[in-house]
């Protein structure tokens, strides 16, 4: 069992996202610990990128805030190394292809495995390009996490068949960001996925309220929340850990177990 599978072993998983270094790494550390204490089963850590093309304004701004602090990939690695001393839940990196590529794919993935990162999400690397990254991940014991979108249709089968860790089901068209309503028929997507793989499905993009967490967790194995958390960091800055802890608790409690 991959470490990531453990996140889905105790009922529906709650997967929060934060951008490392927003507003600084010390605060990111506090937030992650608080989220884990309040029920986060797996944590997605964003490595900031100058031009995050799959993100809406909320996470774009988080990237800008982190980069203004001159946060580098090496800073993030050192931060995770510290974090791993007491945080035991699975953690994955979410960043963009160029951050990994410019560091050197092998060097990047090897470092990930040494500091206790369990997987990698690269939203600008679709199925057709994953062979540049996935075999290296496999070599070092990381899961390369694939995404399925509402537009994937006939592509769902091939993506699901090669899925590792968990499948990131994109709830809606567009970029990341809070949405008042999710119209995609998620149940029919997860139903199709389950024909081809036993890898768990987590739904992300646009989820912010406990009601949505309840609804989405009923048709999937987990729920991913990014922008709704990052928004609270934008608002509360260095004092956001406690607020976010309470929020994570309410979201985890709302999930259908």
């Amino acid at each position: 069992m991959s470490n990531i599978a453990k996140a889905f072993a105790n009922g529906k998983a709650f997967i929060p996202f934060v951008t490392c270094g927003d507003p600084d790494l010390e605060t990111t550390g506090k937030i992650v610990r608080e989220m884990v204490k309040n029920g986060a089963d797996l944590v997605e850590l964003g490595i900031p990128f100058s031009d995050p093309t799959a993100e809406g304004v909320v996470i774009q701004d988080a990237n800008i805030r982190a980069l203004k602090n001159k946060i580098t990939t090496d800073d993030v690695f050192n931060f995770v190394k510290e974090l791993r001393k007491d945080v035991t839940v699975p953690m994955v990196f979410m960043t963009y292809a160029n951050v990994v590529y410019s560091y050197g794919i092998e060097k990047f993935v090897k470092t990930c495995s040494e500091i206790g990162i369990d997987g990698m999400i690269l939203p600008d690397v679709p199925f057709e390009e994953k062979d540049e990254f996935a075999p290296t991940c496999r070599k070092y014991g990381l899961d390369f996490i694939s995404m399925i979108a509402p537009t994937s249709e006939q592509r769902t089968e091939m993506i699901a068949k090669e899925a590792e860790g968990f499948l990131y089901i994109v709830s809606s068209l567009g970029v990341t960001g809070v949405r008042s309503e999710i119209k995609t028929d998620i149940a029919s997507i997860t139903e199709t996925v389950r024909k081809y793989t036993k890898v768990p499905c987590a739904i992300g993009f646009g989820i912010s309220t406990p009601e949505q967490a309840k609804k989405m967790s009923a048709v999937a194995d987990g729920v991913i929340v990014g922008s709704a958390i990052v928004k609270q960091i934008a608002e509360h800055g260095r004092d956001s850990a406690q607020v976010i802890g309470g929020y994570v608790k309410s979201m985890k409690a709302a999930e259908v177990q």
């Binding site: 093309t53 799959a54 292809a97 939203p123 600008d124 690397v125 679709p126 199925f127 057709e128 390009e129 062979d131 694939s146 995404m147 399925i148 979108a149 509402p150 537009t151 994937s152 249709e153 592509r155 993506i159 994109v170 068209l173 567009g174």
Partner: peptide
């Protein structure tokens, strides 16, 4: 190597959401 290569360059590094569109 994926589609649309010019030597080592090119490819299709885009979100899954856009793959069917291209």
């Amino acid at each position: 190597m994926s589609k649309g290569r010019f030597g080592q360059h090119g490819g299709q590094y885009i979100p899954e959401t856009l793959m069917n569109a291209v």
